[in-house]
Design a protein around this nucleic acid. Structure first.
Lengths: 231, 231
DNA sequence: AGGTAAGGATACCGAACGGTCTGTATCCTG
DNA sequence: CAGGATACAGACCGTTCGGTATCCTTACCT
């Protein structure tokens, strides 16, 4: 039984030799079995849906054995949770980095939100928000995925609200919630329409939320004009 | 072989004798096999997801035989399409009715959008937008469900854009798209958070889109103030 | 050199899936 | 009363699902 195995490079994915996908937030160069499983599961869950993705498809794309998956994650449910946790962390790091990079005043950072999203929307591996999608395809009377999604969105919201407060918004919490609504709307609209341009529309709508009347200490504009258009 | 059947009322659902759910847009009093199947499938698809809902669960809730389902719809896929078409039609009728009822000027009608949505969000059978959810749990590289969703959203958008034009919006199409974004955002946020109050937040954001500077023929406000805050 | 940990390959299990089949009961119409 | 149409009941089929068990190969570390 000489059986010269074709895989001269063991512990490497054999099915594909992927190039780095050059995503906005890189999913990974982790070539360990765990990393490959996480990347494959993330890709397939997001692209085809969680329920529509079978274990076999995941191990096939990851180039691992089924035993390895169950040794590392225990169950499909655990894998789903690991994917969401990992993806959420990476997305938040990318998002916050994208609006913070380059500095500037808080309002400048907030206006970077939708241009940043547009870049994400334009990726060929943009499949919408994994958290929203996970909620959408599971029992809505159960809190499981809704709680995970809320936890993710609260971190993002907190950062936006902090910036809103720093820029002197009259009601930072309200402004942050409105921006978050536009973000969610843009994400699902981009997923459905495949048109990154919805980010521009969302940015346009967001622009109205930064009107001088919404800010405590206007920098230049006269107060008379503000009064006229206030509320 | 007397076998006194328990169903003294044939062609009636036996498993449950549901009360009318009193939904904003009534799913139905259609007690035919087709109607019951459509209602049951709509409920289960929306609540638990399409992929997570088996044929057996549907016929169980509908109180029909499996043969009846396949005689009437042919396949699960066909049933899914029938559900989306039917649900979309009913939702649009409800939505347009809700913002048109009571009359008033076009802007008044547009401001009715989010209060109307809030009522929908508060229902115990609110499970988000079936079209968004359908896209979320299927292959995003296929156009199938995305096209169905887009068709639905275009009808809604067209009505909003018509109202925007009637109210004299400077850019009716842009305004309509921004409102649509807020609507989508509110729907998914309500689905995830189970808080109908997001409709208020969306309504607040929408209020900024109706600023005098956005309207061709301002009714009262002076033009000087508008110039100051324009664009 | 040998042991151990990590991972690959594959056969297999019970359950659930979408879908088909046979048979029976009830109604409507002629 | 006959016969067609409609619907219910439930067994059944092939497939796929998530998950387990067994065995084998390789890399690395004393």
């Amino acid at each position: 039984m000489i059986a010269p195995r074709s895989d001269l490079l063991p512990r490497m994915a054999k099915s594909v030799a992927k190039k780095k996908p050059a995503a906005a937030f890189a999913a990974g160069d982790d070539e360990s079995a765990r990393g490959r499983l996480l990347n494959a599961a993330t890709h397939l869950f997001c692209k085809n849906g969680i329920n529509a993705t079978g274990i076999d498809a995941i191990i096939d794309e990851a180039g691992t054995a089924k035993t390895t998956l169950y040794k590392l994650f225990g169950s499909k449910t655990n894998l789903v949770h690991a994917v969401l946790e990992n993806e959420g962390k990476q997305w938040r790091e990318w998002f916050i980095g994208a609006i913070e990079a380059g500095g500037g005043d808080p309002q400048t950072k907030l206006t970077r939100i939708f241009p940043a999203l547009k870049i994400w929307f334009a990726e060929d591996r943009f499949y919408g928000c994994p958290f929203i999608n996970a909620v959408a395809e599971h029992d809505k009377d159960q809190k499981q995925f809704r709680n995970i999604a809320l936890k993710h969105k609260k971190v993002v919201l907190a950062h936006i609200e902090k910036l809103a407060a720093e820029m002197g918004a009259v009601e930072p919490a309200s402004l942050a919630h409105q921006l978050a609504l536009l973000i969610d709307g843009a994400i699902v609209a981009a997923m459905v329409s495949c048109d990154p341009g919805v980010a521009d529309t969302a940015g346009l709508a967001a622009g109205n939320l930064f009107a001088p009347s919404k800010v405590k200490k206007p920098k230049r504009a006269g107060s008379a004009a503000e009064q006229l258009v206030a509320v």
